[in-house]
């Protein structure tokens, strides 16, 4: 083939090859160290699907989803309150964020769990019970994690709402929409585009923070792993099993988040970004299709 004098030869990135090679070597060394270290790999494998651990994983997922749901509901509610014209609702929301964002979640979990110390009995008119019976580790974990999450979600949602321009609210009002209807139908759907990435971040954070609920005897995954290694002394093995499961869940969730973000990107750009599968498909068959197009010509 003749040389094309007009062709621009792309810059060669020798540094990238060099640093890439170094990284590969480092990873290989770490893997080798772990492979040869005093880790009983068959134990890791066998406990990966141990019923007790899988049950713990189920509890971790359950408390994560429920706490995030509670957090999101509280966040939406208090964010709208915080941006209200009413000074009373605004102050209530500000105080909520101040209180629950200002103290460690670990401490909040302990307070919820030990609530019986200040309120021995629960009485809601039709319902009477002892607090120790009501405030199970599950409920204490849900309230502790969810209410704390709500204070962070309030700020995330508020940021999302503020990212929507005033003109949208003007337009909604001019159609006769009340403030709440305008929020629900016009502002929040647009704010979601800004909220979802942070929400994903919070979700992954919650997945891991939920391990703190082991402090109040909630049987989530790390708690189960600890119970097992107290008995069989395979500490590292069980911690690696838990680490593996956390990474698997986070990986799966990142994929889900991609689709949710795509959903809320509607109308935001001329073309929607391709989905993961579409991208994979086009990468696999791009060369193939280009060749076919060439042939047809």
């Amino acid at each position: 083939m003749a040389r094309d004098p007009d062709r621009i030869i792309p810059l060669r990135h020798y540094g990238r090859w060099l640093s890439g090679g170094l990284v590969v070597i480092l990873v290989a060394l770490v893997v080798k160290a772990f492979a040869q270290g005093q880790i009983d790999w068959p134990v890791v494998r066998s406990f990966f699907t141990a019923p007790a651990l899988v049950k713990g994983l189920g509890h971790t997922l359950l408390i994560t989803f429920l706490s995030m749901a509670l957090g999101l509901v509280l966040g939406l509610l208090f964010a709208v309150m915080r941006l209200s014209k009413n000074p009373v609702t605004r102050s209530v929301a500000t105080a909520y964020v101040w209180l629950f964002r200002g103290t460690p979640v670990y401490l909040q979990l302990l307070i919820w769990f030990n609530l019986a110390l200040i309120f021995p009995n629960v009485s809601l008119g039709f319902f009477h019970a002892r607090m120790v019976d009501v405030m199970t580790p599950f409920l204490a974990a849900l309230l502790g994690l969810g209410v704390n999450e709500g204070s962070y979600m309030t700020e995330i949602v508020r940021g999302g709402i503020l990212s929507v321009e005033q003109g949208q609210l003007d337009a909604a009002s001019s159609l006769g929409m009340s403030r709440l209807l305008a929020m629900r139908r016009v502002v929040i759907p647009q704010a979601m585009r800004v909220i979802v990435p942070s929400f994903g971040n919070e979700f992954i954070g919650m997945l891991k923070t939920s391990a703190m609920a082991s402090a109040i005897a909630y049987t989530e995954m790390l708690n189960q792993a600890q119970i097992i290694y107290f008995i069989n002394d395979k500490i590292m093995e069980l911690l690696l099993v838990a680490a593996g499961w956390y990474l698997i869940v986070v990986t799966l969730f990142s994929g889900v988040q991609y689709y949710i973000e795509r959903q809320f990107a509607r109308g935001q750009s001329h073309e929607l970004p391709p989905s993961l599968l579409e991208r994979l498909w086009s990468n696999l068959f791009a060369g193939h299709r280009a060749a076919a197009a060439e042939e047809r010509r």
Binding site: G167, S173, S174, G176, S178, Q190, R266, G267, Q268
Partner: peptide, 29 residues
Amino acid sequence: CRARTKIGIVFQHFNLFPHLTVLENLIEG
């Protein structure tokens, strides 16, 4: 809100709802 339904306004910067289609913009109100 009720009084505003009798008065239409067109803004300098359109202020259409970007997350809704053209038709959805028209039927929302």
